[in-house]
């Protein structure tokens, strides 16, 4: 994912929206989607376009959970911590996965291979506990099953 993103023209993204402050979040979302993170250069370009001071744009970029100022890993794993998933042990599943990957909490491994994030609820409660690995739902997941799936990604 991240490799192809480099070819995307950031100027093209900037030009998608009028230069008004209310489009700040739209722009950050599109940049996040294209590059997997928001670089400081990108943030400056957005500020020049929308007229939002950089301090304010930084506040916005760090306030919302979906923005990341650092590159994410090749493989993105979301573990749902919604109430239904929590009751069915998703907290332990997240902890166990992060321990296996050498992470202290949600974040990216040093080799940029994996990013583990927790989400508040995916609304797929009938499938609890749920994890999403690179966009693929893993219904009724267990620690051993999830680790196996993740291991396979690493072997590829």
């Amino acid at each position: 994912m991240a490799q192809t993103a480099i070819d995307i023209d950031i100027d093209e993204i900037i030009e998608r929206y009028p230069g008004k402050p209310e489009y700040l979040i739209f722009l950050l979302q599109d940049i996040q989607a294209a590059f997997n993170y928001i670089s400081s250069e990108a943030l400056t370009l957005v500020c020049d376009h929308t007229g939002v001071p950089e301090s304010q744009a930084y506040a916005v970029a760090t306030f919302y959970n979906s923005f990341s100022l650092e590159p994410k890993g090749e493989n993105l794993i979301h573990v749902c911590l919604g109430t239904a998933c929590h009751l069915k042990g998703s907290g332990l599943i997240a902890e166990n996965l992060m321990r296996r990957l050498g992470l202290d909490g949600p974040g990216t491994t040093e080799d940029l291979k994996y990013t583990v994030e927790t989400v508040n609820c995916l609304g797929a409660c009938a499938l609890a506990p749920v994890a999403v690995v690179n966009g693929q739902y893993q219904p009724k997941v267990t620690s051993p099953k999830l680790m196996k799936t993740v291991q396979k990604l690493g072997d590829e």
Partner: peptide, 11 residues
């Protein structure tokens, strides 16, 4: 912005 965990009515 259905944020409550365990809720998916609006979705």
């Amino acid at each position: 912005d259905e944020g409550d965990p365990g809720a998916f009515m609006d979705r």
